[in-house]
């Protein structure tokens, strides 16, 4: 997954999926997705074990704010949530890596990694959101209230 690139950017599909899942199904399930996906990614990473789980957890918490505001029904909310989660994930990522002794410069990363990633994530949002909705409908079919 990490090897696939769009416009030279490796999209963080798991973050995208987690944030949109939280918008659709709530924070609890989002944390579960973060935990399972994070463990899988952490195993193959040189970063401190648990970093991805924690960062995805943070991203899903930010996404959860999207469910408790007056703009909840707005079409652009998912884009805002995805952009916010991507920025938060990357800033925390740099902070944790620097804390663990890795050389992860923030300002070069902002231009070379964070902003292109935000752009690509925004492009992918409608596709991943459609996938999340289909999965949600399959898990819990919509009911008609009389």
């Amino acid at each position: 997954m990490s090897n696939a690139s769009i416009l030279g950017v490796h999209p963080n599909v798991l973050l995208l999926f987690t944030a949109l899942w939280v918008l659709q199904r709530g924070h609890g399930e989002g944390l579960l997705v973060a935990l399972v996906g994070g463990v899988i990614l952490d195993v193959s990473s040189a970063a401190p074990f648990g970093m991805t789980i924690a960062l995805l957890g943070a991203g899903s918490s930010l996404a959860a704010l999207g469910r408790v505001n007056v703009f909840r029904g707005a079409w652009y909310l998912k884009f805002l949530v995805v952009a916010g989660a991507t920025i938060l994930y990357n800033v925390l990522s740099v902070a944790v890596l620097r804390g663990a002794g890795f050389q992860a410069p923030l300002w070069p990363a902002l231009g070379r990694i964070v902003l292109p990633e935000v752009f690509v994530h925004m492009l992918l949002t409608p596709i991943v959101y459609a996938l999340v909705r289909v999965l949600c409908l399959r898990l819990e079919p919509a009911t008609v209230e009389i």
Partner: peptide, 8 residues
């Protein structure tokens, strides 16, 4: 496998 982090 490859590291999933964009920084590593």
């Amino acid at each position: 496998g490859r590291d999933p982090s964009s920084y590593l």
